[in-house]
């Protein structure tokens, strides 16, 4: 269970507060106008940006001060998720060992993960030799081998075409449910939220609201969300 307790984020004259919990295994969309602080909220949860007040807890353990790599989560950014000079296999293997020293069992794990995302046979390709969708799959394979209970996605498929984006969303949902992982996904597209997210957090007017069931939210949106949806 992810708990965001009395969180206050400040950056120059930008201010955002958040106070909510996300149950284990839920897939939650984070939606709201650009500049509202969706990505900043993810930055704080993942440890790249320190809040001025409040705590981030995972299963009641305070992780507010932990280093990004030591938190029980994997994050997928909008871009630059893969190192262009490493092969698909190496990029995934980094999720097991940053020094890339792998035991045979670890190599097996990496191969299995690549198989699960549908990339068998492409282990030795570098990102430049993979399509956009395949690159996203490599990133997801790394999320799998890391095996962290929380997955943060910061508009990861925004650069993909509509059909491919839907395909990747379904893959995320499938993998997350199989792993019983909790997912927080920033998106600006209501369809993405409706497709895979049980619940949705609306970030607007300086507040990240507690998650509410996605379908109800879009059936009967509050005013600030209606303005955004148009």
């Amino acid at each position: 269970m992810l708990t965001v307790d009395g969180l206050e984020i400040r950056q120059d004259d930008f201010r955002l507060t958040a106070d909510f919990t996300v149950p284990t295994g839920a897939i939650v969309a984070v939606i709201g106008p650009s500049g509202a602080g969706k990505s900043t909220l993810l930055s704080v949860i993942s440890g790249f940006f320190a809040p001025v007040a409040g705590q981030v807890l995972w299963d009641d353990r305070d992780i507010t001060k932990a280093a990004p790599g030591e938190r029980p989560l994997s994050i997928v950014f909008q871009d630059n998720n893969l190192f262009p000079h490493l092969t698909a296999l190496q990029n995934v293997a980094l999720g097991i060992s940053p020094s890339l020293r792998l035991a045979d069992a670890d190599k097996g794990k990496v191969r299995t993960a690549l198989d699960r995302v549908g990339l068998q046979g492409l282990e030795d390709r570098k990102p430049a030799a993979l399509s956009g969708g395949q690159q996203s799959r490599v990133t997801l394979a790394r999320v799998l081998v890391r095996g962290k209970p929380l997955i943060l996605l910061d508009e990861p498929f925004a650069a993909l075409g509509p059909a491919l984006r839907v395909e990747m969303l379904d893959l995320v949902a499938e993998l997350a449910r199989a792993e019983r992982a909790t997912v927080l996904m920033v998106t600006h597209n209501p369809e993405d939220a409706l497709r895979i997210a049980d619940q949705t957090i609306v970030v607007a007017d300086g507040v990240a609201a507690a998650p509410v069931p996605t379908k109800e939210l879009f059936d009967n949106p509050p005013d600030h969300l209606r303005d955004y949806l148009g």
Partner: peptide, 24 residues
Amino acid sequence: QFGQLADSLSLLGWARIRHLYLPR
């Protein structure tokens, strides 16, 4: 470009020099 990704993967110290800085 890659600092946050490296941090999120605990790619620190010598591993960061070897697998991130030197190749880039």
